[in-house]
Simulated assay, not measured.
Amino acid sequence: MSSPSALTGNPNTHDPSTFATGMSATCLCGSIRVTINDSDLFTKPRGHICHCSNCRAASGSYASSNLAISASQVAVSDPSHKLKKYKDRATGSGKVVERCFCSECGNPIMSIAEIFPDMVILKMGIFPRIPKPECESFALHRHEWQGKHEGLVQYEIVRGGKKLGE
């Protein structure tokens, strides 16, 4: 029988040093494997927590843990052709965001935003460990019951835009 940590995917059982050159993960059913090739993944805060309604819907939660990264640093293996894309046109920018997911288990994998043609936005929930985020976007859209993440840059809406409280 597996230990409770193995069954629940306790991230604290994975020392960040084991991901010195990157890390891999699969969707729930194992059909799709995503590998990040980045030696700086855990050397500093990375990624962001997004509170926009589209990311919330795609993640099935009150926020989404994302990592925007150069597409050249990501390898996606999909030998059974289970990766499907939904073209999300209802975005704040008016530009299409392809929401990629596994058609077998429904697991969100990544988003590809038309406004960032050389980047992918990985859905970090599939990975064994998530780097500490550097910021929150759409912080104005947080629910009043949510705790605040101290030390993170909080943007009212988009990353790089007006900061909360400015």
Rank of each mutant, 00 (worst) to 15 (best):
K123Y: 09
Q154L: 10
I121D: 11
K82S: 15
E144R: 08
I32R: 02
R129D: 04
T21E: 10
S77R: 14
N54I: 00
P128E: 08
C52E: 01
F101L: 09
S77L: 13
V96Y: 13
H14A: 00
L164V: 05
N12H: 09
I126W: 07
L67V: 08
K44S: 15
C29P: 01
I121P: 07
S3E: 05
C135V: 02
G147E: 07
G9I: 09
E144K: 12
S137L: 04
P131K: 04
E98S: 13
L7Y: 04
F127Y: 12
P133S: 01
L83C: 07
N10P: 05
A90L: 11
T91R: 07
A6Y: 04
C105Y: 15
V74S: 08
H48K: 07
E156V: 06
C27I: 02
G92W: 00
S137N: 02
E98I: 01
I130F: 03
S2C: 07
R159V: 10
K84T: 11
S70G: 15
C50L: 02
H81V: 07
I130V: 11
S59N: 14
I112Q: 13
Q73W: 10
N107I: 13
A71M: 06
M124N: 03
C29N: 03
P117W: 06
T43D: 10
G22R: 05
H14C: 05
V74P: 12
F101V: 08
E134H: 09
M23H: 11
G47R: 04
L122H: 05
L67Y: 13
G165I: 05
D40Q: 10
H141W: 00
S65Q: 15
R159T: 12
M110T: 02
K163D: 05
R142I: 00
I112D: 14
